[in-house]
Amino acid sequence: MDRLALPAVLESMGAFQEFVTGKLERAGAAPLVCTRVEMVLEELLTNIIYYAYPNGEGEIALDCGVKDGALRIRITDSGVPFNMLDKPDPDTTLSVDERAIGGLGIFLVREVMDEVRYERKNDTNVLHLTLSLQ
């Protein structure tokens, strides 16, 4: 896996997305798959950018590789302990009036990726993602 580490700010988003989609393209993934994964990265990284470092600046490290027909991503931050996956899925059958604004990002991530797992390890938050490309 190769690593890209950048400041936890929205301006880093494009570079993280290109880092991963570059690997996907070289592995022959379809443009639609690349766009889905871009969205997944936006959902997870914005959560880290907004919530991981309430008292100042920090960094996000993204490790990524394609092996045995699967995309593997690991996202690490050293911010406050925070499992963003730990919330209930939204009810997607409600009407415009009933639906709360927000809460869809993590749901989209779970629907697109094959595996999404959180781990608190050595004072870091780690997200493990897997997507089969076959």
Partner: peptide, 10 residues
């Protein structure tokens, strides 16, 4: 539109 995230849905 080529791309939308939950921010767009919001």
């Amino acid at each position: 539109l080529e791309y939308i995230s939950s921010a767009g849905l919001r």
